[in-house]
Every structure is written in C-alpha cells, then in structure tokens.
C-alpha cells in the first residue's frame, strides 16, 4: 500500500474513532432507549412527593366524618378539596392538622353568586345578604351542610 493511501486511511480511521468517542462521551446514560430522550427521566419524574394523600388515606382515621359526609350534599367533595395539606407536614397530618376556619370567604370560593356557575347543584348565595359577618360553620356543619346547628 502506498504511503500516501495508508496515511489517508489512518486519518480516516482516527477521525471516525474520535467522532464515535465524543458521541459516546456526550450522550447521557439511557438516552435513546425509548426515543430521543433520557429514559431515566421518566423515573426522575416519578420521584416527587405526593402531598395530597387521597381520600382513602383520610378514611384510615376519620371514618366517622366520612360516613357523615356520605349522607349529605357534600358527599362528592373529597376531604382534601377543603383540607389542603400543610406543605411542611406532608407525611403526617397529626403534626400540623389541616384545619379550615370555615369563614364566609372560604365557602364563597364555591358558593358565591356567579353567572358562570351552574344554577342547580351548587347553591349560590349572595353572602352580603346571608348573615354577614358570621362564619358559615357557626350554623352549618361543613361535613353535612343541611344539619344546622342550634344556636
């Protein structure tokens, strides 16, 4: 083989070698396993903590409230709709109980009058007319809203 061709061939091999080496170094682990992305990123996305535990978890301790709720109009409303978890006590609600004050402002989030809300199903109130300055839970049991407390 002439020296010239040999050198050419050698350069060629070295170039391809370097190309493959750089590509290997720069491609992250598990890239391209399922497509043009890092397959491990799927697991990374699963790593996050669940702050909302789901109603089944609440039932472990609060079966009584769940039974009460099932009999009244708030039966479809899940616990965590109102009792959103405290972010620092995500693992244990006993450490920092997710207490809701039941103020008019809180209940108005769902029950204030708004033409965009469906007319039936969710009662809409003009809170200024409906006993202003009083918290809703002073009369209504939030778990069973039609069970009015006696004053």
């Amino acid at each position: 083989m002439p020296k010239l061709i040999f050198r050419l061939f050698l350069t060629f091999v070295v170039f391809v070698g370097i190309f493959i080496l750089i590509q290997q170094l720069l491609t992250p682990e598990s890239f391209g396993e399922y497509g043009h992305y890092r397959a491990n990123a799927i697991d990374d996305n699963k790593m996050s903590t669940s702050f909302y535990k789901g109603e089944a978890k609440c039932n472990e301790c609060h079966q009584d409230i769940f039974d009460q709720k099932a009999l009244d109009v708030h039966d479809a409303v899940r616990c965590e709709s109102c009792h959103s978890p405290k972010i620092d006590a995500s693992t244990d609600c006993k450490v920092s109980p997710p207490i809701v004050k039941g103020t008019i402002k809180f209940c108005a989030e769902c029950h204030a009058t708004n033409p965009a809300r469906l007319k039936k199903g969710v009662p809409q109130l003009n809170f200024k007319e409906h006993y202003d300055k009083q918290n809703c839970i002073e009369c209504h049991n939030p778990h069973a809203p039609w069970e009015l407390k006696e004053k």
Binding site: F51, Y52, E55, A76, R78, S81, C110, G121
Partner: peptide, 9 residues
C-alpha cells in the same frame, strides 16, 4: 391533585 380536589368532579 386537580382531579382529587375538584368538588364537582
């Protein structure tokens, strides 16, 4: 989470 908390499903 959004599905979990939606009060009207």
């Amino acid at each position: 989470a959004c599905v979990e908390v939606c009060p009207t499903n």
